[in-house]
């Protein structure tokens, strides 16, 4: 997938309160560490212990944590890194502290924290400078999209070369990711994938577009045999079938019934006609008595 980010790339992982993108962020850190790159994490929302706990199986020798979690606003006497130090010079100084031949990846957890305290234009400017400067190989930022106004989220995302928006999936621990990639030629690609993250922080893409998603669940539903668990029997054995065929239904007009009705037995009603003398019955004209 997007495991190998380009040089000078800027990736944003957008999440919301319903699904945390930190797990995906961890797998990006893990991937970068496994590529033997050095990773600098600027942690506002996560403590060092928590981060390392999440990265148990990764080679963390090249992971450098900059603790902005304990005191981001300088409320105590010895702040390590405050939010107001978020500028190009400070960041370059941080990354250069450790001498590595290769430029490092900078992970910011999270941009939301910075955006809450520094005006969005200033943040955008710093990020843009960081991209141009070339001191870092790539920048990966986590952004809680539901904490900011749409305009702010939009303007930060315009700077990014890739944006991944994560949302909870339909079932299980799978999640849906909407990926927007901008290549250097200016082409924009959009994609939607369902993924899940394994315990060793590898990302597994389960299926591609979302449009087939609902269809698949439909076919699964159809496959279920509705006659599987019934309390009664739907099929007939041979003897049962013949017995059923023999049975005469009550309202079927059979031959016996017909003859029984037509040839009624003796004693039943019969019409006897004896012509009266007054009956002036003309054989020639049967309708003579009618005044027509």
């Amino acid at each position: 997938m997007l495991q190998g980010t380009d040089v000078g790339g800027f990736l944003i992982i957008q999440d919301s309160a319903t699904y945390s993108g930190r797990h995906l962020l961890n797998s990006f850190i893990n991937a970068a560490l496994n590529r033997e790159e050095s990773v600098h994490v600027l942690g506002f929302e996560i403590s060092e212990e928590e981060l390392k706990d999440g990265l148990k199986r990764s080679p963390i020798q090249r992971l450098h944590f900059h603790n902005a979690f304990i005191d981001p606003l300088g409320w105590t006497d010895h702040p390590i890194f405050t939010v107001h130090q978020f500028s190009l010079e400070e960041l370059v100084r941080l990354v250069k502290q450790t001498s590595h031949p290769k430029p490092a990846t900078l992970v910011i957890d999270s941009l939301s924290w910075i955006l809450r305290h520094i005006s969005p234009p200033a943040v955008c400017k710093t990020l843009q400078q960081l991209k141009k400067e070339g001191a870092v190989r790539a920048v990966i930022g986590l952004l809680h999209a539901d904490m900011h106004q749409k305009g702010t989220v939009g303007s930060v995302c315009h700077l990014a070369t890739s944006v991944i928006t994560v949302a909870p999936g339909v079932k299980g621990d799978a999640a849906v990711a909407k990926i927007t990639k901008r290549s250097k030629s200016g082409k924009v690609m959009q994609d939607e994938e369902i993924f899940s993250i394994k315990e060793d922080l590898t990302v597994i893409v389960q299926s591609k577009p979302n449009h087939t998603g609902p269809k698949q669940t439909d076919s699964e539903e159809q496959e279920i045999d509705p006659t599987a668990n019934l309390t009664f029997n739907l099929r007939l054995s041979e003897t049962e079938r013949s017995a059923k065929d023999k049975l005469a239904l009550p309202f079927v007009f059979s031959k016996e019934k017909k003859t029984a009705l037509l040839h009624s037995g003796p004693g039943s009603g019969r019409i006897l006609y004896e012509p009266d003398a007054n009956d002036d019955y003309d054989q020639e004209d049967p309708d003579d008595d009618l005044d027509v």
């Binding site: 919301s16 309160a17 945390s20 809680h144 539901d146 904490m147």
Partner: peptide
């Protein structure tokens, strides 16, 4: 809506933490 300065935003922010 977009500019909800209030308990909803507080709730979401705390949920993230």
């Amino acid at each position: 809506d977009g500019d909800d300065e209030g308990s909803e935003r507080l709730h979401r922010g705390l949920t993230h933490q």
